[in-house]
Simulated scan of single mutants.
Amino acid sequence: MNEPVSCAPWWRYPLVWLVIAGPVAVMLASAVTVWLALRTPEVLVSEDYYREGIEINRRLADKKLMPAHAGRNHAATPADDVPLPKRVTP
């Protein structure tokens, strides 16, 4: 007739380890993320954000830093001969 099936302990089944590995990997990754976040905090907004914005606008107004579509043919042109970018009027 039917013989009794011998059951191995749970740790002998590879599928059990595969199921356990997912949550363990997520916990390790989240611990590393928390450790990195606490070790190197990022300052998002500086105290003088307005002045920095003005400086960025001044740098972008420089003829050498004009958008590619406005200055695409002036890569080898001397800086004094580069035309000013055209202003778009709404």
Rank of each mutant, 00 (worst) to 15 (best):
V45R: 13
L38I: 05
G53A: 03
V45W: 14
E42P: 03
K63C: 03
A75Y: 02
Y50G: 01
L44S: 09
A79I: 07
A37S: 12
A21F: 12
K86F: 01
H74W: 05
V34S: 09
V43A: 09
S46T: 12
I56R: 12
M1V: 14
D80L: 03
T40Y: 15
P9N: 08
Y13N: 15
A29G: 07
V43G: 06
A31C: 09
D80Y: 04
V43K: 14
A70P: 00
W10D: 13
P78Y: 01
A75I: 04
L28G: 11
D80E: 10
A70D: 05
L44G: 08
A37D: 11
V16T: 13
R59G: 02
W10I: 15
K64N: 03
P23R: 04
P90F: 14
P4V: 08
A31N: 10
A8I: 09
E55H: 06
V24K: 06
V19N: 06
K86C: 00
V32L: 14
D62S: 11
V16R: 11
L18G: 15
R51W: 04
L15A: 15
G22W: 14
R39I: 01
V16E: 06
T89I: 13
G53F: 02
I54M: 11
A70Y: 01
R87G: 08
H74Q: 04
Y50F: 05
A68P: 03
L84D: 11
L60K: 11
N73M: 03
T40V: 11
P4E: 09
D48Q: 12
G71F: 00
W11E: 14
P67W: 01
P85F: 01
V45Q: 12
L84P: 00
D62R: 10
L36C: 14
M1L: 14
I20W: 10
R51V: 12
V19D: 06
V34D: 11
E47A: 11
V24P: 06
L36W: 13
D80R: 06
R51C: 06
E55C: 03
H74M: 02
P4I: 08
L15G: 13
P4K: 10
H69S: 00
L65D: 06
M27Y: 05
N2G: 13
V88N: 05
R12V: 13
A25P: 02
P14E: 14
V19E: 08
V32S: 07
K64V: 00
M27F: 07
P67S: 03
P85Q: 00
L84G: 04
K63I: 07
I20T: 14
A25D: 02
T77C: 01
T77L: 04
A21P: 09
N57G: 07
V19W: 07
